[in-house]
């Protein structure tokens, strides 16, 4: 039961405007530079829709399974992907394995990097001007979806009656 409460960063596609501020602050936090390429969270813009993507902390994370050198492992408690810079040689199998593009090769160090949730206080969530990002769990997301679906149903009933 513990695993379903793992916290990860989720972006609301209805709120995300593709501004890249999450990328800028992430690279600043981790690498102390202005360079979105070094961010652990990345934005995708399919005009006019936008979404920021970061690690989803999958069960039995495929990136970890794919790594031939045991350089990518998942912390059992938090589910965070831990990367051993010594073991990683940048082969990219984990990158291919991730369906979200959430793990990337660092342009300079040539080892992979992934969201580590900033020790539970992610700077991207703090800075997101649209409050599109949140540190959440699949449980909470499911609850929200249920509430929203129920509201829609009642809304529809009201409209049919009137």
């Amino acid at each position: 039961m513990v695993t379903t409460r793992k916290k990860f960063i989720s972006a609301d596609p209805k709120k995300c405007v593709g501004c890249q501020i999450c990328e800028y602050v992430c690279a600043l936090e981790k690498d102390k530079v202005f360079n979105p390429l070094k961010s652990r969270i990345r934005t995708v813009r399919l005009y006019p829709k936008n979404l920021a993507l970061a690690c989803r902390l999958c069960e039995d994370a495929p990136c970890g399974t794919a790594c031939p050198r045991k350089a990518v492992e998942q912390a059992p408690e938090t589910g965070v992907i831990l990367i051993d810079d010594e073991k990683c040689d940048g082969c990219g199998w984990c990158i291919e394995a991730c369906e979200f593009g959430a793990i990337t090769l660092h342009p300079e160090s040539k080892v992979v990097v992934c969201c580590d949730l900033c020790d539970g206080e992610p700077v991207c969530v703090e800075w997101c001007p649209e409050e599109a990002l949140e540190l959440t769990t699949t449980d909470v997301l499911a609850q929200k979806a249920r509430i929203s679906a129920t509201k829609k149903l009642f809304q529809a009933t009201v409209e049919t009656k009137s």
Binding site: G18, C19, Q20, I21, Y24, P36, R45, Y47, P48, N50
Partner: peptide, 8 residues
């Protein structure tokens, strides 16, 4: 939709 420029 309302979208942003980089960093805005």
């Amino acid at each position: 939709n309302i979208v942003a420029c980089g960093g805005c």
